[in-house]
Amino acid sequence: MEALTYFALLLDATLRVSAPLVLAALAGLFSERAGVFDISLEGKMLVGAFAAGVAAHYAGSMWVGLGAAILVSVAFGLLHGFACITHRGNQIVSGLAINILAAGLTILLGVTFFRQGGRTPQLPTEARFTPITLPGAEALKDVPVLGALWSELISGHNILVYFAYAAVPLAAFVLYRTRFGLRLRAVGENPEAVDTAGLSVEGLRYQAVIICGVLCGIAGAYLSIAQSAGFIKDMTAGKGFIALAALIFGKWKPVPTLLACLLFGFLEATAARIQGAFDLTGASDAVRRAAEALPFVIEALPYILVVLLLAGFVGTATAPKAGGIPYVKER
């Protein structure tokens, strides 16, 4: 029974850890399916997290924080769009620049505003997204398996977690069933087809970049005003890149991407849990060192998996064909 509880808690943590990954990966999915590669998911999450922390502190409201995160993240997305869509710049270079800008700017502004080493002030509970107890969670707590599942695993997350998981089927619906989705996928595969059909390549790509900004903003807000009680410098800690890895692992499709996020989230949760969890008294030096290294190995697994995938060892990943290429009308 103890093992079962341990596992349930691990899954519970997985859901929480994966939520920002899911949001960021979906953000990347919209952008990249439209043909705009985006390695600046990380930077946009970071500025989003910072804006959320600052706004929630001053306004005392998490909703204002969320709104600010979205606005700032979209602004950075538009910057990427302006460089890559309007001026046909290199998408990787622009993304890299945005990441650097985000890392520097959040620290500079954080230190300037609050003088707490890049932190934003600790938020009170009223200014944070807090866990929601779903109806019936208390009553069903003692019902074996299903009841426990409901109250332990499903219930008790903040609203952004629920939003993240609801966004997956929503994204799939938009992508595969709507006019907008059809056009979005088309512009990522062959913008010329879109252009000759009388549609605006730039318009569609800008819409994609804006959606990407919104989702990154929410992911950032999740980090600073839901999962934590304030912004800490560099708090994204590579989550944007893990999300990107999950997107590639999920072959740019919503549901596989969700599964990849959950896998990577699970690995992260596991790594966090086994850190210092072993009783190493009396163990040899080698064992001790291996045990200390293990969490880091697990945390590195997502990247290793992606490298294997890209090298062709785990199936194949076909990126949107027009991804990364600025659209220039041919003569």
């Binding site: 709507t178 059809l182 056009r183 595969e189 062959n190 549609l199």
Partner: peptide, 20 residues
């Protein structure tokens, strides 16, 4: 000017979907 991973039908309706 075709979208290669799309079906024939999807290519045909692209741009003239007539609804959301």
């Amino acid at each position: 000017k075709l979208v290669e991973p799309f079906t024939v039908l999807e290519n045909i309706v692209l741009g003239v979907e007539g609804g959301k």
